[in-house]
Every structure is written in C-alpha cells, then in structure tokens.
C-alpha cells in the first residue's frame, strides 16, 4: 500500500470519528461537514439586516388605517407613491365597503341609472357597473352561505387609501369621470388652412382630422353632463337642470337597452333551433352571395380560400380569444 492512500483512509476515519463524537455541539444540519459554518454575514447581508432593524421595521407589521409606502427620495409629502424612483405611479384610492354598498343600493334598490350615480359620486361609469356586478356576486355568496374572506378584506382596505361616500351629502368626486380617450386620428399634426375669421369649433376640428370622427362633445362618456352645464349657463336653475339631466340619462340608458333587445330579436329571427336528444342545433341564416368583388369580403362566412392564416403574423392576433362568452 502506498502511504498516501493509507493516510487518506486515516483522515476519513478521523473525520467520521469527529462527526460521531460531537453530535451535541455541532448543529445537526452541519453534522456531515468538518468545517465550521461561516461566522459572519456578507456585507450585503449585514446591510440588509441593519435596514431590517432600522428603516424596514415599520413595514414589518402594518398598524393603523393609513397606507405606508417607502419614503420618496425627492420630497417628504409624497406619501401615495409606492415606488421611490417612479413619481408617475400613484396608489389610487379605492372605494370602501360602505361606499360600494351605497352605490349598489342606489342602483338596485332606488332604481337610479348608472350614469346618474356615476355623475353624483364622481365614479367612472364602468366602475359603477362593476361594483354592482361584484356586489351581486357577494350577495349571492351570502345567500348560499359561502364563506367570505372578511379578515383579508379588512386587512387590505386598511393598507390602501380609501374613499368614503356619505349618501346624504355632496361628496368630493372619487375620480375624473369625463375622460376622453385620445383617438389615434387626433394624434396627427395636420395643416388645415382656414380663414382667420372662421368660427372653428370642436366639430370642425374633428372633421378636419377625419370625416367620420365625432367631436369631443359626443365622444366623452357624459355628454349629458355637458348639456346640463350648458343649460345652467343659460340661466336654468340647477335643480331643474339636474332633473333634466336625470331624464336625459334615463332616456339614453333606455335607448341602449332597446338597441340591445332589438339586436337579440333580430338574431333570434335569423336562427332556427332544432332540438335533438343530445344537443340543440342552431342554424343561422346568412347570405352566401354577399362575398364582395373577389369573394374575400370581410362579411364572408367560413374559412376563406386563398388568404393567409393571419394567426401567426403580428398584428392579427386572432388566436388570442377576444372574449369569454
């Protein structure tokens, strides 16, 4: 036997002996290792621990009803920005439980229109609709005795900036409700010669951008609100104008509902339903001769011949479904 091999065996033996000998002193996790674990942290880790004990301590447990975000580098009063480096992202307020209940009651119990509630509390139309929808689900859960995540809701709402609504008073608006989507047609700079004396209104501007583009007054979510303000300008008393506003939004909501119903009736008229044991077959009538000049018009039904499948090219992402029915 060469001496090197022998010594290695001895060393191994010694190692195992040590392991067996000191199980009580050496931690269990390191029992197979002969080297002591590193006594010191790295610098980064040490700094982290220092931060955790000093500045980070306040974030460990949340106390109180106010949000606590990382302090901003720039100024002290920035308390609604979660990211210190990004002053453009603000933590928006959310409606508290009571406010959502008030909105639901206004619509489902008092029968007010979504637009009227939206204008009253300054909540976006889509948000009002979503609140009613979610509240209905919650009531359904309560009726079915499904457990709600109440402790979670309480904790989360205490960490977020919340907005309250007092149903009997005038409230400050929750968000901007009359926001206009910036249409791509309006993003171009166009040269439009016109006489200086011309009364060039928003209508004209819209037409200058594109012949089919509606003016901003018609594209905003609350055109009725502008009409109301206009009537107030003309000297109509506020209560009267707001009453007329409510009538107008009621009318517009009714028209939208009628349109929806008419559409369904029209669809239903075109379909023939045949019930079999297993499935219902729905035959929808369509005009196969309406195919355009080259037989490739957009209204053609079915897989089209001689056209590429656009699902693999960028920009025609039809393979991602556009809706969940």
């Amino acid at each position: 036997m060469p001496p090197a091999a022998a010594s290695s065996i001895i060393r191994a033996g010694a190692g195992t002996a040590r392991c067996v000998a000191q199980p009580s002193q050496v931690p269990v996790v390191a029992s197979f290792s002969t080297t002591a674990s590193r006594p010191k942290f790295t610098k980064a880790r040490r700094l982290f621990r220092a931060w955790e004990r000093a500045d980070g301590r306040v974030f460990r447990r949340h106390a109180g009803e106010k949000p606590s975000y990382l302090p901003s580098r720039r100024r002290e009063d920035d308390t609604d920005k979660p990211f210190p480096l990004n002053p453009y992202f603000k933590s928006a307020r959310v409606l508290d439980e009571r406010a959502r209940e008030v909105v639901w009651e206004k619509i489902m119990r008092d029968g007010e229109t979504i637009k009227a509630v939206s204008a009253e509390f300054g909540i976006d139309i889509r948000r009002v609709a979503a609140i009613v929808r979610l509240k209905e689900v919650e009531k359904d859960w309560i009726a079915k005795n499904k457990p709600l995540a109440k402790p979670y809701a309480k904790a989360v709402l205490s960490m977020l900036p919340t907005h309250r609504i007092n149903p009997n008073q005038s409230n400050e608006p929750f968000e901007a409700i009359n926001e206009l989507h910036v249409h791509p047609y309006t993003m171009q700079q166009i040269f439009w010669p016109t006489s200086e004396s011309r009364h060039f209104t928003r209508e004209d501007a819209a037409e200058a951008f594109h012949p089919t583009l509606l003016s901003a007054d018609k594209r905003v979510p609350h055109p009725e609100l502008i009409q109301m303000e206009r009537e107030v300008e003309q000297g109509r008393p506020l209560w009267d104008a707001s009453e007329r506003f409510k009538q107008a939004v009621m009318e517009s909501e009714r028209r939208a509902a009628e349109k929806q119903v008419a559409k369904t009736i029209h669809e239903e008229k075109k379909t023939t339903r045949v019930n079999t044991e297993r499935f219902e077959f729905r035959f929808k009538q369509f005009n196969s001769e309406n195919v355009g000049l080259k037989g490739r018009s957009r209204s053609v039904v079915g897989w089209r011949y001689g056209t590429p499948h656009d699902d693999r090219s960028k920009g025609h992402q039809i393979k991602i479904p556009t809706s969940v029915p």
Binding site: R278, F279, E280, F281, R282, F283, K284, Q285, F286, N287, S288, E289, V301, G302, V324, P325
Partner: peptide, 17 residues
C-alpha cells in the same frame, strides 16, 4: 351558453338555406 349551468349544449351552424 354563457351563465347556463344546466349542462345543455348546442352546436352552431351557419347556413344559407
């Protein structure tokens, strides 16, 4: 159908009769 839990299924056919 959306929001239909009855388990009844349908097949869609478009046809120019």
């Amino acid at each position: 159908d959306p929001y239909d839990d009855s388990g009844r299924l349908h097949k869609d056919i478009k046809l120019d009769a």
